[in-house]
Design a protein around this nucleic acid. Sequence first.
DNA 1: TTGGCTTTTTGATAAATGTCAAAAATTAAG
DNA 2: CTTAATTTTTGACATTTATCAAAAAGCCAA
Lengths: 187, 187
Amino acid sequence: MKQLLSHLVNYSPLSVAAQTALQECFEQVTLSKNEYLLTQGKVCRHLYFLEKGTLRGFYVLDGKEITHWFGFENDFVTSFHSFITQEAAVENIQLLEGSILWCISKEMLTELFNQYHEIERLMRIAYEKYYIRLEERFVNAQFKTASERYKNLLQQTPHILERIPLGYIASYLGISQETLSRIRSKV
Amino acid sequence: MKQLLSHLVNYSPLSVAAQTALQECFEQVTLSKNEYLLTQGKVCRHLYFLEKGTLRGFYVLDGKEITHWFGFENDFVTSFHSFITQEAAVENIQLLEGSILWCISKEMLTELFNQYHEIERLMRIAYEKYYIRLEERFVNAQFKTASERYKNLLQQTPHILERIPLGYIASYLGISQETLSRIRSKV
DNA sequence: TTGGCTTTTTGATAAATGTCAAAAATTAAG
DNA sequence: CTTAATTTTTGACATTTATCAAAAAGCCAA
C-alpha cells in the first residue's frame, strides 16, 4: 500500500485526506502464476495497480493467442476498453508470475473522483502518460520494421526480454516467433 | 463557439460558470489550406478544437512524409506528446482544407483545471475516449494485414476516403500507395 | 479546349516476413 | 541424474508488401 501511494503521489500531489480515502478503497489481491485477472466476454469492473509481478494482456484470433501488452511493477492495469465503456472485454489478462495487486472498482473510483478533485486530476495525468506511451507503440507498430522494433525493445525496455518467454514477446512486437529468432541471431 | 460548447457538454455536463470561463479562454483561429498549425521542432503550447475542416499530422522519415493521423470536425487536435511533455514536437500539423479552429493555451487550460473540477473531469473523459480510439488503431496496425486495415477504414471511417488524397491515406494505413491502389482494385 | 501539373494505377522485380516441419536447446519433474 | 515436456532455433518455401519506373487518369489554369 505504501508503494501504491508513493507511486500515485508521483503523478500528482495528494492531500492526506485523499490519501486516506484511497487507502480505504484499494484492496489487496494476490494471485499466482497463470491465474486470470480477466477473461474475454466479461466486463472489466476494476482498475488494478501491480505492486509486484508480471502479467500479459492477450486475445484469441484464429485460435492463436495474441499477446499485445505486458504489465510490470507500478503499472496500472485493466482492460481499458472494457473498463471505460463497461462493455464485454475482448481480451484476457493473465498472470505470468505470482503477483501482488491492488484493486479498486469503477464505482468506487468514480465516487473518489466526485469527492476529490485531486484524485480525478491524478487520473487525468495518468491517462496523459499512458496515451503517450501507446502513441509511441503505435508509431513503432505501423512504421518500423520488425528488427527496428526489436532493437527498440532492447534499448527501451530490456526488462521485458529478461522476464518474458520469446513467444509472447514476438507477439507483442507483432512478428512471428521464427522471425524474432532470426532477428536475434543477427543482432 | 456554440458548436464547441455543445460538443464539450457531450463529454460531461458543465455548469454555466464553467461554460462562460471556457468561452472566454478559447480563441477562434481560421487557417487556409496547406497552412501549418505546428511544425516539427517547436513546442506545441496549444490544444485546438476543429470546428470545420480537415488536417493531418505527419512527420518526416528518410525524406518522406509519413501521415499518421487526420483531424476532422469536432476533433481535439494537438501534438499530444509535445503538448503534454512540452518538449519539441516531432510532427507537423497541416491544414488540408480551409478550417475554423478554437484554440486554448496549456497555461490557460491548466488554470481552468484548477478553477473547475468539472473541466478537468471533461478532459479526463476526453483522454479516455482518445485512448480507446488509439488502442484500436494500434491493434489494427500491429495485427491486421494491409487489406484488412483498408476494409476496416471503409467500414468505420469512410469519410476519410471521401476527403483525403490516397497518398496520405496509404501512409495513414501504414502501406505504400501502390499497394493501396492494388488493394482497392481488388475489393 | 489544351497543355502542364498532380495523383493514381500498372508492371516487373526485390525484400521482408510468415508458415510448416523438424532439429536443437532449455527447463521441469520424477 | 535422466527423461519428458516445453521453448527456441533452423531450413525450405510461400506470401505479402515495398520499390522503382512508367503509363494512365484526373484536375486546373490560361
